[in-house]
Write a protein that binds this DNA or RNA. Structure first.
Lengths: 251, 251
DNA sequence: TCAAAAGTGTTCATTATACACCCATGA
DNA sequence: TCATGGGTGTATAATGAACACTTTTGA
């Protein structure tokens, strides 16, 4: 059906013009401003939250905006996203992953701007937030409306939320949203809230215990008005060594 | 833990300077050339193949290159990817999906160029390929070495291949690599080759039949030297209506 | 009649689901 | 002592894995 592989390993056609000056080539390309936008999720009070700042653009007066910035010259986009995170929240070394690139020509009112969305997850210890410029604070994801945010940031947020929901099923991603020590109830609340489902308490426990990544700290909750639950830590090291690989065809 | 939500819905600080001219703002951003690269997979002779062309850059003389082009002014990247596909292969209306953006500052020798990788899957009817400029042809993915390709295209290809492997388990994506009518043996060969595993024939059949998306065409293979297998079509419409949603926590 | 691959069913092990009771704590 | 949620176990159903024989065709 396909052409024979070896027969086509013919020499390069000699009459085809080769490009000698690659800098000149790149100079000839159109150029586009690039930004990164960080969708920083947190979890508190059994609700998924996202960090937003006030837009400082007049036409978006009063609206909220994702944490973003343009990419510096010769800056890798991953680095740009970490930089934004650091500059805006004072945080370093958190989970961060590229989700997708948004390129609608009219997504920015000032002209064409591409943006690459990154997702990060912060745990809910509020001492993480040291910089509060531009009214940086947490917003409940579920109740946020398109009209509340600038640009196409609602679309970006929705994409990242869907990404998070899917990702949470396959990676211990959600653990980054909890404090280091957590109860099983907190863990279940996290899953129920983000996935927007109800789970059976007993089966949820069995599931997590059978994965065998929870370390019993020997400590207990101390701020509850009922029997305190045990606190666990997640064994990220063990997880890294035992990752699942193949789950089977299912669609 | 978090600040109270309503208490923070304070008015915008009046002394903060608002940006009035968004065009001026965007003008101030650094600009970067953007390309799209299409990783076009095909399947034939029980092997996964990828479409490559000869690089026309002198320093990559003799090496192969993904099908790419810079994004035109005001062109959405998805459109650019479809355009590249059309211009290079004459094909339209095929599966195409954004995979990720590559941004290493030195990935292009001519200066900083970002590229957004798209994955497409063509079925193996060779009459699809009408344009053969730049020695466009299929290469066996498994035996392709880094030294054989230009730029960071091996890295992009590897990323897209990993993406394809994962995606195939959850979506009937691989069906786009087969002719419209196919035997179960062809389907299994596809999965075995791409996932690089061996599957039990009987369980594979049961699995696919139980999903109930295969339509018996009533036709049979006619080019085999043994008992011919039945030919099926995949019911994409039914699939779209019955997509799976939630597969459970598993990591 | 032989070789090669198509087609089919059963058993067993594992995993998921549904469900009910006792326990520890603070108020 | 009561309300609240923590902690546990079992029975059943569904799914996945392992495995062997008969059938059809072309050579």
């Amino acid at each position: 059906m396909f052409e024979n592989e070896t027969a086509l390993q013919q020499p390069v056609a000699s009459d085809r013009a080769l490009i000698k000056d690659v800098h000149e080539l790149v100079e000839s390309y159109p150029r586009v401003p690039i930004t990164v936008d960080c969708v920083i999720f947190g979890f508190d009070n059994n609700e998924l939250k996202v960090l937003l700042i006030r837009s400082d653009i007049e036409m978006y007066h009063g609206k909220w905006s994702l944490l973003g910035d343009f990419a510096h010259d010769h800056e890798e986009l991953d680095d740009a996203a970490y930089r934004v995170l650091r500059e805006r929240t004072g945080m370093d070394d958190v989970y961060l992953e590229q989700v997708r690139t948004f390129s609608k020509p009219n997504r920015h009112p000032g002209g064409r701007v591409l943006t690459v969305a990154y997702c990060s997850l912060l745990n809910s210890e509020h001492h993480d937030l040291k910089i509060l410029d531009n009214e940086l604070h947490w917003h409940v994801v579920k109740t946020l409306r398109s009209e509340d945010v600038a640009f196409d940031h609602k679309e970006i947020l929705d994409t990242c939320y869907a990404w998070l929901q899917k990702r949470m099923l396959e990676h211990p991603l959600g653990l980054n949203l909890l404090p280091e020590k957590f109860s099983l109830r907190e863990l279940q609340n996290l899953y129920e809230a983000i996935l927007d489902i109800k789970l059976d308490r007993r089966n949820f426990r069995k599931k997590f215990f059978s994965m065998d990544f929870l370390i019993d700290t020997g400590e207990y909750e101390d701020d509850v008005h009922h029997r305190p639950g045990k606190l666990y830590r997640f064994d990220f090291d063990k997880y890294k060594l035992n990752k699942k690989r193949w789950t089977g065809i299912e669609f």
